[in-house]
Design a protein around this nucleic acid. Structure first.
Ligand SMILES: NC(=O)c1ccc[n+]([C@@H]2O[C@H](COP(=O)([O-])OP(=O)(O)OC[C@H]3O[C@@H](n4cnc5c(N)ncnc54)[C@H](O)[C@@H]3O)[C@@H](O)[C@H]2O)c1
Ligand SMILES: NC(=O)c1ccc[n+]([C@@H]2O[C@H](COP(=O)([O-])OP(=O)(O)OC[C@H]3O[C@@H](n4cnc5c(N)ncnc54)[C@H](O)[C@@H]3O)[C@@H](O)[C@H]2O)c1
Lengths: 241, 241
DNA sequence: CCCGCTTTGTGCTCACTTTCACAAGGGCGT
DNA sequence: ACGCCCTTGTGAAAGTGAGCACAAAGCGGG
């Protein structure tokens, strides 16, 4: 009866699940765009490349939002997943280091699916400070603390050379930023309360090289090639602690 | 000395270990650059932000290359890790989609720590075909198959808009490429023999947002902030299948 | 040549993930 | 109202990884 508590999920969504929620969310939004009203775990799992049982278990961590015999209401699920991920509020992002990569990031329109606002661009190079990139002025790294305060930055994106990354990170942490996305190829040292995620191109390539080597390694080619069509996911995940 | 079988490790290095080897390798190269001849698991673990037991177990999967009471020979370990990752041979990389991101990638000098060679840049936009980016000419996507064959491309990097990614991927797979690094925000559908790793900025941000929300969520601030100085790693990992 | 100090390599335990398999639940046709 | 069929939600099993704690092993000094 009046099942009051629809399972608010006291706390503790597995990290592995958190990493997949954005993938589901994206697929759900695509379904929504094409007008699909409901979707089964089987179908959603297929388009996101995961096992349907895993998908159901993932969603079950948010609560019981499906209807047996029918599936999930796309709109409603989008809302629930967004809420869980914290996308119902806006997050200010600052990009530090407006070089090749920082520029590409700044120009990247589809910044998440809403929820994120690029609030500031910072660089140490005086010759580009003042330039406008993607409509935003590049500001000097010197005023980082001020900018973080004024813009209420909660996520810092580090796209500086490796040598400057730790210093920049320390300053971000120093003025209260507790989430950092790091593109520089260094291991950042931060307090336990700060989350750091890294994106490292060379590591990705090296992992691919490892598997590539394995493939050519022993033999020519046989028993490889499973049936074409098997889905795949890969890449980013792993958490902090 | 004549320790003949240094444990060739028949096969099967845990994926989690593979993902960390590049990190160790980078730290080892830094040590080597500064002339350090040997390093203990404790020290190497500290600079790479992992538990020393985990580091030792990781390295033990490659064989017994340490010396008890002393540590690991930096040079030797660099060689062994490189070999295991397949970096003793060169891998040709093709970047498809020379827009903001593709350009940044092409210009990225520190491409891995050797081992990788950017062999070709491809794009569908005739107006930029022929341009030189980072010293390489942008070629037309039409001749992808030819380029892959001639340059012996083994890794394809997809930096096209999401809508084109699957098609590009299919063509890469079609001409024998079995390793793909995907920057487009789509789940690629590939045969089982193909490895796909993805780098997805919005997913990373959403994961950070989730944790950020958790931090501010319930309470003000207490029992948070573990002792500053704790190391952190994060980001990429997870494999294919 | 023996001893004690240091650091590796690893057995074992515990925690987290994935996947299977299925009972319970819900809608719909009759 | 009833029963059939479909899909969810989840216990339990299996797989993977993290980390502790320690015996085994180099190394150097006495
Ligand atoms: N370009 C890529 O594709 C790519 C790929 C993987 C990783 N990365 C990493 O991303 C980072 C940026 O790469 P990039 O190609 O854009 O380099 P870049 O040299 O083009 O840009 C770096 C920018 O950071 C600025 N900078 C330097 N020190 C700074 C400081 N202390 N504070 C603020 N800004 C500072 C520089 O002025 C420059 O504008 C590097 O660490 C690189 O290793 C880049
Ligand atoms: N720029 C970023 O920071 C960023 C961040 C995350 C993800 N991404 C993703 O990376 C991809 C590229 O981003 P971008 O900012 O460089 O976009 P972009 O529009 O600047 O560049 C895309 C390039 O791909 C080319 N292209 C289009 N269709 C093609 C086809 N069929 N074959 C070959 N080339 C084709 C276009 O001509 C263009 O040069 C997008 O999928 C984007 O979502 C970009």
């Amino acid at each position: 009866m009046t099942r009051r508590t629809p399972r608010p999920r006291e706390r503790g969504i597995p990290e592995a699940t958190v990493a997949r929620l954005p993938v589901y969310l994206r697929a759900l939004q695509a379904l929504n765009d094409q007008g699909t009203p409901t979707v089964s775990s089987e179908d959603l799992a297929a388009t996101t490349g995961v096992n349907s049982a895993k998908l159901r278990k993932d969603l079950s961590h948010l609560g019981s939002y499906g209807t047996r015999g029918v599936g999930y209401d796309v709109d409603y699920l989008i809302y629930q997943v967004s809420r869980e991920l914290g996308l119902t509020q806006d997050w200010s992002v600052a990009i530090i280091g407006i070089g090749n990569l920082g520029r590409a990031l700044a120009n990247y329109g589809g910044f998440g699916s809403r929820g994120f606002r690029i609030a500031a661009l910072l660089d140490a190079d005086s010759s580009i400070v003042g330039d406008k990139v993607a409509g935003l002025p590049v500001r000097h790294i010197e005023i980082l603390e001020e900018v973080v305060g004024v813009e209420d930055v909660s996520i810092g994106v580090i796209a500086t050379p490796a040598a400057a990354a730790q210093t920049v990170c320390d300053r971000l942490v120093g003025c209260g930023v507790t989430s950092v996305l790091n593109f520089a190829p260094v291991v950042l040292n931060v307090p336990a309360a700060v989350d750091v995620r890294k994106v490292d191109l060379s590591i990705e390539l090296q992992i691919l090289a490892f598997h590539e080597q394995r493939k050519s390694d022993g033999h020519g080619a046989s028993e490889w090639f499973g049936m074409p069509g098997s889905l795949r996911d890969a890449g980013t995940s792993d958490l902090s602690g």
